[in-house]
Amino acid sequence: MTEAPRILLTHHLKTLKLPTFLREYEKVARQCAAEGLDHVQFLSRLVELELIDRERRMVERRIKVAKFPTTKSLDSFDFKAIPKLNKMQVLELARCEWILRRENVIVLGPSGTGKTHVALGLGLAACQKGMAVSFTTAATLVNELMEARDERRLLRLQKQLDGVKLLIIDEPGFVPLSKTGAELLFELISQRYERGSKMITSNLPFDEWTETFGTERLTGALLDRLTHHVNILEMNGDSYRLGQSRARKAEATT
């Protein structure tokens, strides 16, 4: 190919936003020539590479937007360490059909049992399936809601959160919420009722959620909305983090 057509082709591919096509076409052309493949097979290979790379970039973008504190998959979770956790139920949830049905997931268990790891793994699975996800801690979310209310942009934030397919709220049981904070969180969850999926991790059993949300009336109304269409994962057992730490130390000394 002479220089002028090459420059023009590069310009067109950049305009069409086909970076993989641009990066790979010469190499694929050589491969197809060596294999005796025609122009249709050449174009088919390039289009397939572009689609694969585009999907990878879209997944990476969704993961970035989700604001996961770290990226963890279910493949790296040691289910044997938490025998009470129903592995088949978790793997079924990883298919993300519950999100399409606008159901909820509540993950219950003591600190250190891997609740956040499972939540991150299910959130990652949702991103890989093309779904918008948002991850936040309960404390961070409540602070954002209160700041938005004070700055008269609460409606905008609520609409933004309403746009995600899956909202993950990590550990609302760590600290009690103020009356205003609890009410704002309740309002957000109520708005998503049967409209968008929520996943909540908590180190408190349901009968102790009043300690976080303040009143039995508010807690009851909240649980009523969360548990109407719910999948519950129970992760009672020894500390998952402690077990992982011991295993790493044992490997280091062998």
Rank of each mutant, 00 (worst) to 15 (best):
M1F: 11
T2Y: 15
E3H: 14
A4Q: 15
R6C: 08
L8N: 02
L8S: 14
H12W: 12
H12V: 09
T15K: 14
L18Q: 01
P19S: 12
P19A: 09
R23L: 04
E24V: 00
Y25Q: 00
V28I: 13
Q31P: 01
C32P: 04
G36W: 09
D38P: 08
V40A: 07
V40M: 11
L43E: 00
S44E: 10
L46K: 00
V47Q: 07
V47P: 02
E48S: 11
E48N: 13
R54D: 06
R54E: 06
M58A: 14
M58W: 11
E60Q: 15
I63F: 09
K64W: 13
V65A: 10
K67T: 11
K67H: 14
P69A: 04
T70A: 13
T71H: 04
L74D: 00
F77S: 05
F77R: 00
K80D: 06
I82G: 02
K84A: 12
L85N: 04
L85Y: 07
L85K: 07
K87Q: 15
V90Y: 03
L91H: 13
C96D: 02
W98T: 02
I99V: 14
L100M: 09
V107Y: 00
V107M: 05
L108A: 05
P110E: 03
G112Y: 13
G114N: 06
G121S: 09
G123K: 03
L124E: 00
A125P: 03
A126Q: 04
C127N: 03
C127W: 01
A138Y: 00
A139W: 02
A139F: 12
V142G: 00
M146A: 06
A148T: 10
R149G: 03
R153K: 15
L154H: 03
L155M: 11
Q158S: 05
D162S: 15
V164I: 05
V164L: 06
V164T: 02
L167Y: 03
I168Y: 01
I169Y: 01
D170K: 02
E171G: 06
P176C: 08
K179W: 08
G181H: 02
G181Q: 04
L184A: 04
L184S: 00
L188M: 09
Q191N: 13
Q191V: 02
E194G: 06
E194M: 06
E194K: 09
G196A: 10
S197L: 13
K198H: 07
I200M: 11
T201R: 06
T201V: 08
S202G: 10
N203I: 05
F206L: 13
D207N: 12
T210M: 10
G214N: 08
G214C: 12
T215E: 09
R217T: 13
G220Q: 09
A221G: 06
L222D: 01
L223K: 08
L223Q: 10
L226S: 03
T227N: 06
H228M: 03
N231R: 08
N231G: 03
E234P: 10
E234A: 12
M235I: 13
G237A: 08
G237I: 10
D238S: 15
G243T: 14
S245H: 09
R248H: 09
K249L: 13
A252E: 13
